[in-house]
Amino acid sequence: MEHTGLRRRSIIKGSAWSAPVIVATAAMPAQAASPTNPDLGVLFDGGGGADGALNSVYVDLGVPATGTPMTLQAPLVMTLNVEGLLTAATDERAFTVSASLGSVSRGAYNVSTRTTTITWTLPAGTKLPKVSTASGVPDILFTFQDGGSKTTTGRIKNKIVITSVTGGTIVTPSSTPIDSSVVRDVNQGAVSPNGIY
């Protein structure tokens, strides 16, 4: 009888020690595949018109080309500035902005800095493939109208600067701020491959 009791206690001890190991092992792959603060990559995919004329640009978002596609576990918020490069102009160049996923809000135009701030929010559950210009990749489309200024001669040209990201870290092509006129467009064969629109 005494031998049986010891054996039961040994089995109970063994199962108590093994249960947490099984739970931890099951949770680890899900955490690794879906981090709450993932590394991200962006591409500026612009061109289609001369600088300061009718033009458009996509800002594509995903995991870096070397990363693994994943699902956001928390909302992601990207802040971008659309900056006018004609220093003599006090008016804002007309443009529209829309996102393939999530929501976009547009701030008021700041005359002194010639800047309009855009906030793009992607909800938890958004799937992030590898960053590319393919369809299905979350993106924002900026459509710029003719840049003729009402207050001075010359054309208003614009660049886009990604100033911050909350809920993720951009690691490619660089860390924030990311200036379209510095990193340029991925589509180098376009009319405006220089990241200025």
Rank of each mutant, 00 (worst) to 15 (best):
T115Y: 02
I160W: 06
R114K: 15
A190H: 00
V59S: 07
M28D: 07
Y109H: 15
L54V: 11
D45S: 12
L101M: 11
T126C: 06
P129S: 04
M28F: 03
I162R: 03
R9M: 07
K157H: 07
G41A: 15
V183H: 02
L86P: 01
S135T: 15
P129G: 09
L85C: 03
A26S: 13
T126D: 03
L54C: 05
Y109E: 06
A27T: 10
Q31S: 10
K150E: 07
A99I: 01
S18E: 10
D45I: 03
A190E: 05
S181F: 04
T4I: 12
A134S: 14
S181A: 15
P177Q: 08
D51F: 00
V21A: 13
V77E: 13
T143S: 15
V59L: 14
T153M: 07
S18W: 05
I22T: 15
T119R: 15
G47E: 08
V111R: 13
G47H: 07
L6K: 13
A89Y: 06
F144G: 04
P173I: 02
D139W: 01
W120A: 06
V165E: 09
A99F: 00
T115M: 06
V77I: 14
V171C: 07
Q188S: 11
G147K: 06
S103C: 03
K127F: 00
E83I: 08
V59C: 01
P35M: 04
P177M: 00
P177L: 03
G168L: 04
T66F: 04
V59N: 01
A65D: 08
T163E: 02
K13T: 11
V131G: 01
D60F: 01
T119H: 05
A65Y: 00
L72Q: 03
V137R: 03
L76N: 03
H3F: 10
R7T: 10
A19V: 07
